[in-house]
């Protein structure tokens, strides 16, 4: 069971309550909520916020692919996964991503949550432009996407 969505910060917010509603089930004994939030310092600069840029279609596609790969690699059949990522400006302390997981057992939930966030970092076309108190805003250096041949 998978839910994915890109949330435009100009119109909406990431809500933990929505994730809670989605993953809640008496058949699952373990739930984990991973939240990514905007922190106030990066590389010794005072951060005031981050603008997230997103290739919507590719990001949603990558979330589905990561979920499918988790099925194959981790063999966790019964699970609920809720992933939402923000796009647009996000202020200090605000949520940029939520990954809510529910599985039968805690080992599965921890492993699956970690797997999903690490794969998103590697594969999902999302970019951050950091805004600072004193310095000029700048795009953060990321990791190149692997060039897959088709």
């Amino acid at each position: 069971m998978l839910h994915t969505k890109i949330i435009d910060s100009n119109k909406d917010k990431i809500l933990i309550s929505k994730a809670d509603e989605f993953i809640k089930s008496s058949s699952f004994g373990a739930s984990i909520y991973f939240l990514g939030t905007v922190r106030n310092i990066n590389q010794n600069k005072k951060v005031t916020g981050i603008t997230y840029d997103v290739h919507d279609e590719m990001v949603l596609k990558s979330f589905t692919e990561i979920y499918s790969e988790a099925n194959q690699k981790l063999g966790i059949e019964e699970k609920a996964v809720f992933i939402e990522h923000i796009k647009g400006y996000v202020g200090l302390g605000d949520i940029s991503i939520i990954i809510a997981i529910a599985c039968a057992h805690r080992d599965q939930a921890y492993v699956l949550s970690r797997f999903i966030i690490e794969e998103i970092k590697k594969r999902s076309p999302i970019w951050k432009k950091e805004h600072y108190e004193k310095d000029e805003s700048s795009w953060l250096k990321g990791n190149p996407v692997l060039n897959e041949k088709i």
């Binding site: 940029s96 970092k121 076309p125």
Partner: peptide
């Protein structure tokens, strides 16, 4: 065509 610079979301 979309250009995809190095990524780093989350």
């Amino acid at each position: 065509i979309g250009i995809i610079p190095p990524i780093g979301g989350g």
